[in-house]
């Protein structure tokens, strides 16, 4: 049975069987890798970078196991490490001197010609990305959890450690701010902020 988020984990104890350790590692990855990705993505709005941070976070978890360290709450540990890695990236030389992902430079992901519908979709995504980047990271995070991972309000509340009512409120406000900015910058119709609360 896989260990949950609230149980301390130390695969170095007991038999130390590598296969068992690996199985627990993969279980944790299956459980929390998307949460870690969502956190990193909400911070930088870069899917590939978020995936790199996710992989690095789990590799560090494995190294901690190898060092024999007991991790009381793996999910909290993973999210904390991912947050630190995301912040470290802000200080890195690559961030200061590096380039931007192609979709941020030209709003088109690939150089190959795209069908008209796909092109229009990519353009919409680029506008949405620009507006999302203007939002606070906390707004982006809750939107990512809701729409990227399809979590309901209860799950988001558990993930963020807040009350369900707070999730409804934050989600509604984030969505409203997004709709306002989107309608201001583009011809996208402003949504109804109350619908999100009803839907959740």
């Amino acid at each position: 049975m896989p260990k949950g988020a609230d149980q301390p984990l130390n695969p170095g104890d007991g038999s130390g069987c590598r296969a068992e350790r690996r199985a627990e590692f993969e279980t944790l990855y299956e459980l929390y890798s998307r949460d870690v990705w969502a956190l990193a993505y909400a911070r930088w709005m870069d899917a590939d970078l978020a995936l790199d941070i996710t992989q690095e976070t789990f590799l560090r978890l494995w190294k901690q196991w190898e060092a024999g360290e007991v991790i009381q709450n793996p999910r909290a540990w993973l999210l904390r490490v991912a947050r630190n890695l995301a912040e470290d990236y802000a200080k890195s030389a690559f961030r200061r001197n590096g380039t931007q992902p192609p979709e941020m430079l030209s709003s088109v992901r690939a150089a190959q010609p795209l069908p008209a519908e796909e092109l229009e979709r990519q353009e919409q995504f680029a506008q949405l990305r620009a507006v999302l980047e203007e939002l606070a990271p906390a707004d982006r995070e809750i939107l990512t959890l809701r729409y990227g991972l399809d979590y309901d309000a209860q799950t988001i509340a558990e993930r963020l450690g807040v009350a369900v009512t707070a999730v409804h409120m934050r989600l509604s406000r984030a969505r409203q701010r997004l709709a306002e900015r989107l309608s201001y910058h583009t011809d996208f119709p402003a949504g109804q902020p109350a619908s999100e609360t009803q839907r959740s």
């Binding site: 590692f25 299956e30 899917a47 939107l143 729409y147 997004l178 996208f188 949504g191």
Partner: peptide
């Protein structure tokens, strides 16, 4: 029902890798 919900859902889904990548290989392996 809302176009913004649909757009947000499509956008975030498009950002996630499909299929989701496997767990990284631990260094010792």
């Amino acid at each position: 029902p809302d176009p913004l919900d649909r757009l947000l859902s499509d956008f975030f889904k498009a950002q996630m890798k499909q299929p989701w990548p496997q767990a990284p290989l631990p260094p010792a392996t």
